[in-house]
């Protein structure tokens, strides 16, 4: 597919944790040739404005994603099973980040 050779290195996905204890969220991607360069490039792109307290970079090809053609079999069967969500509980007051 790609006729033009990519000289920017491997693609890495960046995940940032905004506060200790919270889950890491996908922030974007960077190019880099190895781990050290990947974490530094990610820092320069994504954490200069107080975005987080923790960061992961993961080689994009290490991520296994659901193929778009499998969407129906993976996600649709849960559409009518609302009881799979804990939505029938009252949350205690003052509970955040549920």
């Amino acid at each position: 597919m790609s006729e033009v050779k990519d000289t920017q290195g491997q693609l890495w996905e960046v995940f940032i944790q905004s506060k200790k204890g919270l889950p890491f969220k996908h922030a974007g991607s960077v190019h880099a040739f190895d781990k050290e360069m990947a974490i530094q490039n990610a820092r320069d792109l994504y954490t200069r404005r107080g975005e987080g307290k923790g960061m992961w970079v993961v080689p994009a090809d290490a991520i296994v994603a659901v193929d778009a053609s499998d969407e129906e079999s993976f996600f649709d069967p849960s559409n009518d099973k609302i009881y799979r969500h804990p939505t029938f509980y009252e949350l205690p007051e003052g509970l955040k980040n549920m």
Binding site: T7, Q8, H31, L45
Partner: peptide, 11 residues
């Protein structure tokens, strides 16, 4: 030399 490093240098 590439986009990410360009941003790093500017920073």
């Amino acid at each position: 030399p590439f986009l990410e490093e360009d941003i790093a240098q500017t920073n």
